[in-house]
Design a binder for these strands. Structure first.
Lengths: 230, 230
DNA sequence: ATCTAAAATTGGATGTATCAGATTCGACGT
DNA sequence: ACGTCGAATCTGATACATCCAATTTTAGAT
């Protein structure tokens, strides 16, 4: 295979391929967050494999990923265990996302070009229309795009990978986050503040606005009681 | 196997077991950072397996971890590729560490008990002695312990996991970071500032001090030219 | 009843064969 | 010479058997 010369070219080569390990990981994460497995419960590879109708190979890959997210604790030769406090995990993940997304906004404010700012402005306008139309589906998509573009502007590949780890939680919780109209409106205001800071070339402002946005969202979700026994 | 009731108990159960996958991952990371594999070069599982004398199973696990770190980009069915710009990766990882360690310091400042503060003070005193004695080996160990204790105080398990991902880079670069005596002294001053902020119960101060510390270190290492072709 | 050592069990780790997706190459028709 | 299509090849993904580490259970001695 010829060697792609840029990470961005690699990105463009990405297919929509979703492996059994990917699907398994998503199902396990969802099951843990929904309380199918209790806090502290042991997760045995062979048992999970039988339960999910796959071999232990994708189970191992899935547990490794969930381990990096903090949702599972694995000990060599001893087994994997569900985190003790799922609600706390969601709050922890919110803090991590705030830190990582804040860093992305900081970098974006430092290096955004006029063209990139125009693209971001387009997303803001899309979100304004979605909010006015109360179109939650499109709002979710525009919301995701807004955050994604900031990461692209930041140009920090490792940051994007790391944020991708915790983004799963965002994708799971975002529909609920936007189901409350006042939260939706507030989210839009916060996105505008982030955008203005990036446009103004204000890294500290962009960082602070993004963190405040993610943290407000995290508090709202905690208050809504997302997680075990939902 | 009886189910451990707390994550901390799980931590205490940890053995020193190091799997073939663990060793393989460390060797691969080191080889990439030292320029054995060129930026953009394709990493083929079967080839690496033969080269390293193992099966593809631990190679897969290693590539998955390196992928989460941003050091490798993997495409399903297409292969894995070394990141294009290793020097940039180290800088990126520094930014991520600053954000994550800053968050840990923030949380530690919010919740540290008198006993925990005393433990941290003990580490500061150890570092003072190491610096005075110019004992780099013990300084490295005390440095690692200082950061580790802050994470334990923060009580954020996911944050600890995520920081653990990027900590590999810190463990690789720290000897060089502390080889310069003025950097060692400066590092101690910065640790003192972090400690004072945690002791004072000043979350913002602890966050800012920690970030400044990690970022100063990142800039120094970049200036030293760590990475490809070293 | 208690202690110790060996055996059995549990559960993760690895090797290897095979499957599956994507790309490259060669044959054939125009 | 060029385009198309199928075969071959490349490379990751998965299934499954086996290995290995750690824990639990059992048997025997005291």
């Amino acid at each position: 295979m010829n060697r792609p010369s840029k990470n961005r070219e690699l990105e463009s080569l990405k297919t929509n391929y979703k492996s059994i390990a990917d699907v398994t990981c998503e199902k396990l994460r969802k099951a843990i967050l929904e309380g199918v497995f209790s806090p502290g419960e042991q997760l045995k590879e062979r048992e999970l494999a039988t339960l999910m109708g796959v071999s232990t190979t994708p189970i191992k890959a899935a547990l490794q990923r969930l381990g990096m997210e903090g949702l599972v604790t694995s000990l060599p030769m001893r087994g994997s265990f569900v985190a003790e406090n799922i609600s706390a995990i969601l709050t922890e993940v919110g803090l991590i996302r705030a830190a990582l997304e804040g860093t992305a906004a900081y970098l974006a404010a430092m290096k955004a070009t006029d063209e990139e700012i125009t693209t971001l402005q387009g997303q803001i306008e899309k979100m304004e229309r979605c909010t006015a139309d109360r179109d939650i589906g499109r709002a979710i998509e525009a919301n995701t795009n807004f955050h994604e573009i900031i990461h692209q502007i930041s140009g920090n590949h490792s940051l994007q990978q790391m944020t991708g780890i915790v983004r799963q939680y965002d994708d799971i919780t975002r529909p609920q986050a936007l189901s409350d109209e006042s939260q939706m409106v507030q989210g839009l205001q916060e996105h505008k503040a982030i955008f203005e800071a990036i446009k103004a070339g204000d890294p500290e402002g962009a960082d602070a606005s993004m963190r405040a946005h993610v943290l407000r969202n995290t508090r709202f979700l905690k208050q809504q009681g997302l997680g075990v026994g939902k």
